[in-house]
Simulated assay, not measured.
Amino acid sequence: MADTAKPSLDALFMGHRSTLVRLLSRMVGSAATAEDLAHEAYLKVRAAERDRPVDHPLPFLFQTARNLAFDHLRRERRLAGVVVQDTTVEGVEEVAAPLPSPETQAGDRQRLARMNAALATLSERQRRILLLNRMEGLSHAEIAERLDVSVSTVQKDLKAALLACLEVFARLDREGLRVSAGPNVLQRDKP
């Protein structure tokens, strides 16, 4: 009798990770960014599996990764287009920053409090890895070297930290507190 058991997403990801990273690296031109995008694709597919069964997880993983790479490239292009010629520092300082409405401020404070609560559930090393990766833009290898741990440890801790944050976002979404699509703590705009 043939074994019809579907391999787990973890097994599929680990078995095809190097191929996925090579593909993404060719697309975005950076091995470190490719690693991050592959990991983010895995987390997105994992979150999607919670909502509904995924019949073909491997093609879904690769398509999700390609979409993330295209988003990354569009974001890079947009950031490169923001530079305006012949602008002085004084001219930039004179541009008024729009103030958010009181409702937006209250919602932001509530989201920040929930995110801080999620971060408080993480170990110190998981928090440091998340911040080094998402805020300082360090690759998995750079973080492993800085913290004197293995790259595998960095990947596992980053996965746990991101899953905790995704759970907070899912809870906020269910409660009607939408998380903006713009840059946030979990998105990194630079490679």
Rank of each mutant, 00 (worst) to 15 (best):
L131Y: 11
V21R: 02
R109C: 05
V84M: 11
R178A: 11
S139F: 02
A141D: 14
A65M: 05
S180W: 07
A32E: 06
H16V: 04
A2N: 14
T104H: 13
D36I: 12
R50W: 07
L147T: 00
K190H: 15
P53F: 05
P59L: 07
G137S: 03
A34Q: 06
V54N: 04
R74E: 14
L20W: 05
F62W: 07
V151F: 05
L119T: 05
A31E: 10
S150T: 15
N67S: 11
K156H: 10
D71Q: 02
F169S: 11
V83I: 15
R178D: 08
R66P: 04
V82W: 13
T64W: 04
H72P: 02
E35M: 00
Q155V: 12
S101V: 01
L20G: 03
L37C: 05
D55M: 13
L68R: 03
A5Q: 10
A69R: 02
E145I: 03
F62A: 15
V45W: 05
Q85Y: 09
A31I: 10
L158E: 03
V92L: 07
Q155L: 08
R109Y: 06
Q105W: 08
H56Q: 12
L12D: 01
I129A: 04
Q155E: 12
Q110H: 09
L163N: 07
R52D: 14
T4L: 15
V154S: 00
L186S: 04
L43H: 00
E35K: 03
E49W: 00
A120M: 02
F13R: 00
L23I: 10
R46D: 13
A161T: 03
D86I: 03
R109W: 09
R74D: 15
L61V: 01
L24Y: 04
S150W: 08
V45C: 02
P191V: 12
D173W: 08
L79K: 12
D148I: 06
V82P: 00
A11Y: 04
L99I: 09
K6Y: 09
R127L: 08
L12R: 02
Q110C: 06
R50C: 06
R77W: 12
T153N: 04
F60T: 14
A117Y: 07
S152R: 13
Q63K: 13
L99N: 12
N116I: 15
T153F: 06
G15N: 00
L61Y: 02
